[in-house]
C-alpha cells in the first residue's frame, strides 16, 4: 500500500508529508508529479500537500485544480479512496470542486504562522482516531485560509456533520478569530463515503518526536488504517 503525495510546481510541504508518513506513521509514501495522468495502481491514499502551487497566482489552488492529475484524483475520490488536502491542498480541493467552498485572504491581510487550538467536530473515517469533540493544537501557516461558502452550504455542512475542524478562538459572529473563516471552519469533510478531508492546519508538522507534540498523528494514522481496511474489505 502506498500513500501518494502529489507534487505540483510550488508545492513545498510534499517532502514533509512523506517524512510524516514514513518516519512518523511507518507507512510507505511516493511522490507523484502533477503532469501524470494516472495514479499508480498501488495507490491506497492521496495527500495534496501545502505550498504555493503555480505560485498561487490568479487564485490559490486554481491552476493545480486543473492540472493533468486532478481527473484521476477525482475518480479515486468517487471510488471511496481516502484523500487529505493540507493548506494549499485544501485550497486545491475546493477549487476542483471536490470540497465545497473557497478560501479567501485572511481577514487582516497577513500571513499567519502560529499554533491554533482546534475542535475536532466532524464525522469521517479519517477522524476516528480523535475523540469526538477533542481539542487539539496544530500550527497554521497561510495567508489565505479564510473559509467561505454560502449560507445554505454551511448549513448543510453543519447538518451533515461535515465540519472536520473548527478554530476554538472565535469573534463575536462565531467566525475564526485568526483569519475570519466562516463559522470558524478550519477543515471540511467530503467525498461519497466521507473519505476526503481538507484542512488549513498542518498535521505533518506535529507528527515526529522532534516536534514535541503529535496532534497530527491521529489523522495520518487514520489515513493509513482506512486504506488498509479498504484493501481488505
Amino acid at each position: 500500500m502506498t500513500v501518494v503525495v502529489v507534487t505540483f510546481p510550488g508545492s513545498n510541504c510534499d517532502r514533509d508529508c512523506i517524512t510524516a508518513v514514513v518516519e512518523g506513521a511507518h507507512g510507505a509514501a511516493l511522490r507523484v508529479f502533477h503532469k501524470e495522468h494516472e495514479l499508480p495502481e498501488t495507490t491506497t491514499a492521496v495527500i495534496l500537500p501545502g505550498g504555493f502551487s503555480f505560485g498561487d497566482y490568479l487564485r490559490c489552488g486554481a491552476m493545480a485544480a486543473r492540472s493533468n492529475l486532478m481527473p484521476a484524483i477525482q475518480r479515486f475520490v468517487d471510488a471511496g479512496g481516502p484523500v487529505v488536502g493540507i493548506c494549499n491542498g485544501f485550497q486545491i480541493l475546493c477549487e476542483a470542486g471536490v470540497l465545497p467552498g473557497a478560501l479567501l485572504r485572511n481577514r487582516d491581510g497577513r500571513f499567519h504562522c502560529e499554533e491554533v487550538e482546534l475542535e475536532v467536530s466532524g464525522d469521517s473515517p479519517l477522524l476516528v482516531a480523535y475523540q469526538r469533540n477533542e481539542n487539539i493544537v496544530l500550527p497554521i501557516a497561510h495567508g489565505e485560509g479564510n473559509y467561505f461558502a454560502d449560507d445554505d452550504t454551511i448549513a448543510l455542512l453543519e447538518r451533515e456533520r461535515r465540519i472536520a475542524f473548527r478554530y476554538v478562538a472565535r469573534d463575536e459572529q462565531g467566525h475564526g478569530a485568526i483569519n475570519g473563516a466562516k463559522k470558524a471552519i478550519a477543515g471540511v469533510v467530503g467525498g461519497p463515503q466521507r473519505n476526503v478531508i481538507g484542512l488549513m492546519p498542518h498535521p505533518e508538522r506535529r507528527s515526529l518526536d522532534l516536534h514535541g507534540a503529535d496532534d497530527g498523528m491521529p489523522l495520518l494514522e487514520a489515513l493509513l488504517s482506512y486504506s488498509e481496511h479498504r484493501r481488505h474489505s
Binding site: C13, R15, R110, A141, H202, S207, L208, H211
Partner: peptide, 8 residues
C-alpha cells in the same frame, strides 16, 4: 508572518 516550520 514567517513560515517557521515548513520543512517540518
Amino acid at each position: 508572518q514567517y513560515d517557521r516550520e515548513v520543512g517540518a
